[in-house]
Amino acid sequence: MNPSLDQIWQWLETVPDPEIPVISVVDLGIVREVEWQGDTLEIAVTPTYSGCPATTVISADIELALRRNGIKNIAINQQLAPPWTTDWLSDTGRKKLQKYGIAPPQSSGAPQNCPQCQSADLEKISQFGSTPCKALWRCKTCLEPFDYFKCH
């Protein structure tokens, strides 16, 4: 018998994002759909940024995690529409990011607080950061630079 979809989602929640390993691919909101077609598990994954090099690694990690749990037939499909948005980042994902030192995305387009000292006195250093999904900001209170997960 096929494992239940609830069980599958639980397994997927253990698959970390390769670039930001504190959040899972489910927290990131890139797993769009999971369903059984006969004995094949079909998974729709959407890329965060079209050129993000992590995309292929993520598909491989998902497949590996599910195989480890005994699933044999897995089809991972890339789904472009609707395009990924940071609105799909889960609330737990946002909290984990902040704790990890990455300010979570805000609809205002700017981080709310410094992840180190919580100050709101911040300045943008660069719109692009260490990965396509991040911008570089600095806290004017504790003077620490930090990554901001861009609203997208």
């Binding site: 940024y49 079209s50 993000c52 090099p53 692009f128």
Partner: peptide, 8 residues
């Protein structure tokens, strides 16, 4: 990053 977007 811009180049990466464009290649993607």
């Amino acid at each position: 990053n811009t180049a990466l977007d464009l290649i993607g």
